[in-house]
Design a protein around this nucleic acid. Structure first.
Lengths: 335, 335
DNA sequence: TTGTATGCGTTATCAT
DNA sequence: ATGATAACGCATACAA
């Protein structure tokens, strides 16, 4: 059995409360007794029982990080960044993978409701469900990352996909690609609608007419991107460029193009998503929209911490713009 | 404030202990009262406070997963698999990233000592330190994954790197590559010694003489692999094949070769490490040693669960062999 | 400065 | 079958 406060108190010949104060650096303890207590604690490798501490103080120093999917390098990057921020503030992270299953999300939410964590950040995923809404009413500390919804009462940190796609389309138009296909996720997700609006905005501003038929929905997997290409080239009007808006979709799309015997950017230009190791090693080097993963992680933890400590007034929404990193895959040779 | 057992008890007009029994499906509760209690609990969205529960029952249903590095796709894969296994058994995962810092490892170990988690699995990393040893004496539930050391008292799940490298060398020799360079990590890690022994074994068995000078140490990063190649070609005797034993090193190595204007496998054959998306999209398709990540995760959780429940007698060591997946990068055209 | 006492929300051991 | 009560290990308000 572990050694407890009581044991230390007995050994030091003082009361438990004194030990508690001494070990938590609270004032009201004589310097001599404090020294003695700390010495004894160290000698015996005393570790406060965090459960008891949490129960008494109503604080666990743990947060839940709820991931919609673990296959996305960007999401992992966000988690890494969150972990660093959390560690600096002495917070532990409980990792939750929902695989986009709302039921799992609901069950992980009970970590909050059962006081196991002080707060939670939800990364990605679909619409906010009623379970999340209720959690917000219960005044829990919740931050949303890259998740959008109609009734959003939550503090959020978002990537501005609209401006991102806008930049990408603009760039492609400048390179004289005019039939730009947009490969995105299911439109029942508001985030995808954002992308589409950026697409139309860019076309409109440039004075071109966007073609509704060049927008393709697919799931966010590698296979999804692969299949998307196969579907697209079945069309009457074949595009001359692709914008892929998810990380793995991008990979699959490029593979499909190459497998089909086509060349990038000669036959098709490609703008992918995510400045990660994948898009940096695939050939040709890919022009991508780069998500500010580090910032997303850091800022969301900042917000969460403030929410936990009641230092955040009202709903905060931070929107970060992705960068367009231009590489070979979108540079027309006929310019 | 959350609703508690006491509240439910009051509403149902029974004692707290009865509520506890009813909600935990323990016997000794009348069917009618049980139904009534459950109904009230559900109506009020009651969530047992896990801290209190853990404190009383000395069980948290949480485990720590301590990662030496998060940049390895294989490690992430292990975590995913662990998460699935854990979720099935109603365990939560606390994610800990040590970045190979022994101090951090030590601090994460206190999660065990402070009763915050029921057990911990350590993935990768260097030698077992004295802190871990002490933890083992304290009878904590600990499982080691892909970590080796002299004084190893721990239940472990290991990849047999020796046999892996052996297979790789054998394969390359068969393809008539005779000067095989081995790129591995620092030899102060026993796991790396394992690799080297596999290398020598294969050479010896084939009746060839292995060249000590063809073994190169580098860190496990992409840059490490890149630099390794640059160093190696400075040598008098240049190899005709490479075996890279880490995931990111593999990527860097291939990049260096290609950047140098060389071709794979014409100028150099390459056997990489890790059957992940990276090695599947890099060109040419890479022959790799495939680590059984899924099994590593699953089995380590199995062991851990048994340790927690005192169902594991003695020290268990499970060794899994990696597969050699042969693709273009190691197939000689002159065969 | 230090000690006493109480509570945090459960589970578990006794009675009844 | 049910209830009263004592732990679990700590923090904290209050008393001394």
């Amino acid at each position: 059995m572990q050694i407890t406060l009581k044991d230390i108190a007995r050994m030091a010949g003082v009361a438990e409360s004194t030990v508690s104060r001494a070990l938590n650096n609270k004032k009201g303890v004589g310097e001599k007794t404090r020294k003695k207590i700390i010495k004894i604690a160290e000698e015996n490798n005393y570790r406060p029982n965090q459960l008891a501490r949490g129960l008494a103080a109503n604080k666990t120093n743990m947060i839940a990080v709820v991931l919609s999917e673990m296959d996305s390098p960007g999401n992992i990057e966000i988690v890494k960044s969150l972990e660093e921020a959390a560690e600096a503030d002495n917070y532990q992270i409980i990792l939750c993978n929902t695989k986009n299953d709302p039921e799992k999300e609901k069950s992980y939410l009970s970590l909050l409701e059962s006081n196991q964590v002080d707060g939670a950040v939800f990364i990605g995923g679909k619409l906010v469900g009623s379970h999340l809404l209720r959690a917000s009413l219960d005044d829990n500390a919740i931050v949303l990352v890259n998740r959008l919804s109609e009734e959003n009462f939550f503090t959020s940190v978002l990537t501005d996909y609209s401006i991102g796609i806008y930049k990408a389309v603009n760039h492609l138009l400048e390179q004289n690609y005019n039939n730009i296909a947009l490969v995105c996720g299911s439109r029942n997700n508001l985030i995808e609608e954002e992308k589409i609006s950026g697409y139309f905005n860019a076309y409109q501003e440039a004075g071109f007419k966007a073609d509704q038929n060049l927008i393709f929905e697919t799931d966010s997997s590698r296979q999804g991107g692969y299949n998307a290409f196969l579907e697209i080239i079945k069309n009457d009007s074949v595009p001359d460029a692709f914008i892929s808006t998810k990380e793995l979709t991008t990979i699959g799309l490029v593979e499909a193009i190459k497998t089909g015997g086509f060349f990038i950017p000669d036959d098709f230009a490609v703008v992918g998503y995510g400045d990660n190791i994948l898009t940096s090693i695939i050939e040709p080097p890919l022009t991508v929209l780069s998500e500010p993963s580090k910032e997303l992680g850091r800022i969301s933890f900042d917000y969460l911490l403030k929410l936990i400590n009641d230092n955040l007034e009202g709903q905060q929404i931070k929107v970060l713009a992705p960068n367009l990193i231009i590489r070979d895959s979108s540079i027309s040779k006929y310019n």
